[in-house]
Each structure stands twice: as C-alpha cells, then as structure tokens.
C-alpha cells in the first residue's frame, strides 16, 4: 500500500517537475542569452492559463483552445518584450527587477479586473479523462500522464532546437558572444526577441497544461515563479540541461516531502509534534536543498559554459 502511494507520488513529482521545467526553460534561456532577469515570467504562465480558458469558452474544443492560447501567449510575450523589456536590456539588474515587478503588479491586477478574483477552471478534455491501470491496484489519471508526455516531448524538441538547428546555434553563440554574432551580420535583437517570445510560449504552455488540474486565478504564477528560480539556481543559470534535471529533482523532492515528511517525523517525535513539524519541514525542504547545493557549488550543478 505504501509502495503504491510512493509510486503515485513519484509520478506526481515527475509531473510537477515537468511543469517547472517548462517555466524554468524560458527563464534560464532569457537570462543566459540576454542577461535579463524577468520576474514577470510567472505572469506569462498565468496568461497562458487564462488564454486557454477564454479560448475554450469561445470554441468549446480543448485542442483548438490550446493552439489558440499558444499563439496568444507568443504574441503576448512579444508585445511585452516590445513594450517594456527591450528597454531594459543592458540595464542594471536592479532596474530589471523593479520594472518587471511593476509588470507583475499591473498584469495580476489586470487579470483580476478582466476575469474576476475567483478561480476559473478548464475541464479535462474527453479523450484524456478517466484513469488507467498502471499496475494492479494502481490507477492514475490519463490527463496527468498526458502532461508528463507532452512535457517530455517539449523538452526533447527544445534540445533538438538548441543543439541541432541553425537558430539554436545562433542562440548558443549569442549567449556568450553577442557582439561577434551581431558583427557576423545576424540581427541579434530579432534573435533575442524570438528567444523571449519562445520562452513566454513555453511558460504559457505550462499554464495551459496546469489549468485543468489547478485553479486558474490571478497571481497563480507567483509561487511557481519562485520554484522556477530555485530550479534555475540549482541547475545553473543559463543551462537548459541543468534546468531540466533540477526541475525533476525539485518536483520529486517537494512532492515526496509533502507526502512523507510528517510520517517520517513520527519516527522521531510524538505524533502531535510531528504534525506540527512535518509540514513546516516539507515546505522548507527544497530551499534547504538549494542552500546546500549552492554552498558547495555556488554556480549551480551544471553551470552554463562561459559564465
């Protein structure tokens, strides 16, 4: 029974890790390539979820809604880049933090005004509803398996894009030698805008995937943003591979901690003390993990080359 619970929680951890990766990938790429710290990245996750809900209300079809929302997320990311972020390139990190904080305040409030403060939800599509039997006695929702599969597919696609295509090569070159890439006749600003839009789309995609299982509400991106920061700090800022591994580690550790910390504490403490300490410890676990990693490897587990 406990083994069964462990298996279910491992899958849940994997699924959280995949969602985190989708958000962290854009964040780490934008930072690695443009040296730009974007606190508003979580807002793009929120926007993706709201776009999906709105598109679903209009069309009634999940697949069409996702495709429309992806396009909207991309457009929205490019719009923000054009309106605000391109003016912040090369500026002090403090300026970037402040301005993107302003973007968060604005857009969270805008979401509250447009869609209201109460949570919305997106129904699970018919084809992916229900559960399947993974092992005798172990049922797992199909939709969650769908999230894991879609996330892994995107991760693979991202790797192919960065490691095997001409655009990916330019992005990698731009990350370390932006002026030289520009001198070779590449429009570096357009390249950066593209990376930015793509990152926004990935975050939006994560929001859409999460929409049917989590509540779609204003500020929904804020907490995930912090987790994504922990992921890219542990993985090494700028490294997509590091972000992938760190996201899986964080997703796994966080989920396991929340499920088992209280039981584990009961081995050492009285049940009532364990009920108090367990949840507190569980919520601190990933930050302690981050502190330990950074204490020994200040640049993260897989530092990107050139930094």
């Amino acid at each position: 029974m406990s083994l069964m619970l462990m298996a279910v929680q491992s899958l849940n951890g994997l699924q959280l890790g995949i969602l985190l990766f989708l958000i962290a990938a854009g964040l780490t790429l934008v930072f690695g390539v443009m040296d730009f710290i974007n606190l508003a990245h979580g807002v793009q996750y929120m926007a993706g979820a709201y776009f999906a809900v709105t598109a679903w209300l209009l069309t009634g079809n999940f697949m069409i809604a996702v495709i429309l929302a992806l396009a909207a997320s991309l457009a929205f990311g490019l719009l923000l880049q054009w309106l605000v972020f391109r003016h912040l390139m090369g500026r002090d990190h403090l300026d970037q933090v402040l301005a993107t904080f302003g973007v968060i305040l604005t857009l969270n409030e805008a979401a509250r005004m447009i869609w209201g403060p109460s949570p919305l939800s997106l129904p699970i599509p018919e084809a992916l509803s229900g559960s399947i039997v993974l092992m005798p006695g172990l049922l797992y929702p199909v939709y969650r398996i769908g999230i894991i599969a879609a996330g892994l597919a995107v991760a693979l696609l991202l790797w192919l894009l960065i490691a095997r295509t001409r655009v990916g090569m330019l992005v990698r070159a731009g990350a370390t030698h932006a002026p030289i890439v520009a001198a070779l006749g590449i429009n570096i600003d357009r390249l950066f805008a593209m990376v930015f839009g793509f990152g926004a789309m990935l975050a939006g995609f994560a929001g859409m995937m999460a929409a049917p299982i989590l509540a779609v509400e204003p500020s929904m991106g804020d907490n995930l943003l912090i987790l994504a920061f922990v992921v890219i700090v542990i993985g090494g800022i700028g490294s997509v591979r590091g972000a992938f591994l760190a996201a899986l580690i964080i997703g796994f550790v966080d989920t396991m901690g929340r499920s088992f910390a209280t039981d584990l504490m009961k081995l050492f403490l009285s049940p009532s003390a364990a009920n108090d300490v367990g949840p507190a410890l569980a919520s601190m676990l990933i930050y302690i993990l981050m502190a330990v990693v950074l204490f020994f490897r200040p640049a993260g587990l897989f530092p990107a080359r050139g930094t």
Partner: peptide, 12 residues
Amino acid sequence: RIILGPLLILVV
C-alpha cells in the same frame, strides 16, 4: 495596483 504598476515601470 493597475495604476501603481505602470507608474513603477515608467519611473524605472
């Protein structure tokens, strides 16, 4: 906050 946010961006 919809006023404060853009104000902050402009100041920066």
